[in-house]
């Protein structure tokens, strides 16, 4: 990946749209010097004015346009709730683009994307960027959520060759979780051969590895971890990799967010 320099910027909230009962799409002005980011990279946002909450919150980049940065925010606690309450015109401080590795598609290959929840964001970014800049083969999105009202497929229908939806309650698409759907689709030969890209809860990625994902050329996953610095300095967000000589930790913010799924020591990660 190219060596991108990040910076600290003040952006303006251009648009905040509620896209599901718990999720918001935020469009921020893109600062002049913000260098275009790669899929899997993120920004860290200063949430409040003072010290509550103390730490910045990391969010994947869902899209970069000529003059805006798009993020998908799910309200899960104090910080995300505050972020969702910010209004058009508010100034928001971000640091970015952060992350030392990204999703990469080999020329002409097909890609199967597997998203759980807001794991959708970096995958949409990858699909949009590759469609613009490369000649990708087929791009399939497998996307799972608890219920149909949390499915944000409308946001990205046109970005993929095909979108396959799974809901746990069966209210839309496949009745079950996204990994069960993945297995069903691959058994029925619906999915093209190619690279696999995932982003979602640890349980989802682990289950993918235990399924027949190995039949794909490569499986790269974008990880999340609680972060403090976001720049690889504090060693607070580390993920253990499988290693012959004891334990080997890599930082999700500085070395990731994207790792080969097989390289991660899943026995020690996300307990």
């Amino acid at each position: 990946m190219t060596d991108l320099t990040m910076g600290s910027y003040e952006t303006e909230l251009l648009l905040s749209e509620k896209v599901s009962p718990s999720s918001f799409l935020l469009t921020l002005s893109k600062p002049d010097r913000f260098i275009d980011a790669m899929p899997g990279q993120f920004v860290s946002i200063k949430i409040g004015e003072g010290i509550s909450p103390l730490l910045r919150r990391p969010y994947s980049i869902m899209d970069i346009t000529k003059d805006s940065i798009v993020l998908l925010v799910r309200v899960v606690g104090k910080g995300s709730a505050l972020l969702a309450s910010r209004k058009k015109g508010d100034l928001i401080e971000i640091i970015g683009p952060l992350g030392g590795s990204c999703f990469e598609l080999k020329d002409d290959l097909n890609a199967v994307f597997i998203a759980g929840g807001t794991g959708l964001a970096p995958l949409v970014f990858a699909a949009r960027k590759w469609t613009k800049e490369k000649k990708p083969g087929e791009l399939h999105l497998l996307y799972g959520a608890a219920s149909s009202n949390e499915i944000l497929a409308d946001l990205c229908m046109r970005d993929f060759t095909e979108v396959h939806i799974a809901t746990i309650d069966g209210s839309k698409g496949f009745n079950g979780n996204v990994v069960e759907m993945f297995q069903d689709l691959s058994e029925r030969g619906v999915l093209p051969e190619g690279q696999l890209f995932s982003c979602g809860p640890v349980g989802m990625v682990k289950a993918l590895l235990d399924s027949n994902a190995a039949s794909f050329i490569d499986h790269h996953t974008s990880l999340e971890a609680v972060m403090a610095c976001g720049v690889g300095a504090c060693r607070g967000c580390v993920v253990p990799l499988k290693s012959k000589n004891g334990i080997e930790y890599r930082s999700v913010c500085g070395d990731g967010t994207v790792f080969r799924a097989e390289d991660i020591d899943w026995k020690r990660w996300g307990k």
């Binding site: 504090c234 060693r235 580390v238 253990p240 004891g246 930790y249």
Partner: peptide, 23 residues
């Protein structure tokens, strides 16, 4: 030093707990 296993950061009210373990 590889540092500590498990959770290394936890935000608190106006503070931060860390268990980086001198990695």
């Amino acid at each position: 030093k590889e540092g500590n296993s498990g959770t290394r950061l936890q935000e608190t009210e106006a503070g931060l707990l860390n268990s980086v373990g001198l990695e």
